[in-house]
């Protein structure tokens, strides 16, 4: 594996919360730039924890995590924001800010990065139109349905064109049509170079979008893409058959 091109690399990573048992141990795998992976495993296997380690919300109990080629243990605190801006996250519980409109929630990553306010509004509104929320641009999250909130969360995660997109059950609250649309959006992002990792239980999605999997079994990760030598994205035939 070419380590220089690994967006994510775990080496013997173990994780426990407090004094509890290890959620997983000796986890070693790498995800190359431009890959698309489904993160699968039984409930409680540690999918969300694994994502949290990737989006730098937690530090591992042991082992090394390299993100974009940098050892996260040695990254200076002042450099963390820049690294986090390269990562888009769709949280399982959306984590929208209650008092901000859909537009302001989606604009958050651009705003914290110091983007120009004038350009920001047009860009965000366009993305919200794309996810079907053109009539809810100024709505507060409390006025949106679960599925609409999820689409706002997805828009927020992709607005900054991240190098790595991590999504925790991004289709959990939407119908199949919207779920497919979201996956196509993520696939388009993947095509322009964004590495995508999606934690999901949605078997229909997994079988339809035959991307390689990071499968958590017995506290370890098995990368089906690495095992089979599968390409980062789906085969041409699969891609051609989508949306039909």
């Amino acid at each position: 594996m070419d380590r220089k091109k690994d967006v994510v690399r775990f080496q013997n990573v173990g994780m426990r919360y407090g004094l509890g048992p290890e959620v997983f141990h000796d986890m070693s795998f790498g995800v190359k730039a431009g890959s698309f992976r489904f993160l699968v495993g039984p409930s409680g296997a540690g999918k969300s924890t694994l994502l949290k380690l990737m989006y730098l919300a937690h530090r591992p109990s042991r082992g090394l995590i390299h993100m974009f080629g940098h050892d996260t243990a040695t990254v200076a605190r002042k450099d963390m924001p820049a690294m986090r801006r390269r990562i888009g996250v769709v949280f399982q519980d959306f984590r929208l800010i209650d008092h901000l409109s859909a537009l302001d929630n989606v604009a958050l990553p651009l705003r914290v990065a110091g983007a120009n306010e004038e350009q920001l509004s047009d860009h965000v509104a366009e993305l919200l139109r794309w996810v079907g929320l053109e009539n809810e641009i100024h709505s507060l999250p409390s006025r949106l349905s679960g599925g609409q909130q999820q689409r706002v969360a997805i828009a927020r995660a992709v607005i900054g064109r991240p190098d790595l997109l991590l999504a925790d059950e991004p289709t959990g609250n939407v119908d199949n049509t919207i779920a497919m649309r979201i996956l196509y959006l993520l696939e388009e992002l993947n095509k322009i170079g964004t590495t995508v990792i999606i934690a999901t239980h949605n078997e229909a999605l997994i079988s339809r979008f035959k991307f390689p999997q990071l499968r958590i079994e017995d506290g370890r990760v098995i990368d089906t893409g690495a095992e089979t030598g599968a390409p980062a994205s789906r085969t041409t035939n699969e891609a051609a058959g989508r949306g039909s």
């Binding site: 989006y55 963390m80 984590r95 958050l108």
Partner: peptide, 13 residues
């Protein structure tokens, strides 16, 4: 604290 954590996670300094 939740909102602050979110701001950090989206890259706020």
């Amino acid at each position: 604290d939740k909102e602050i954590e979110l701001l950090h996670l989206v890259g706020a300094e």
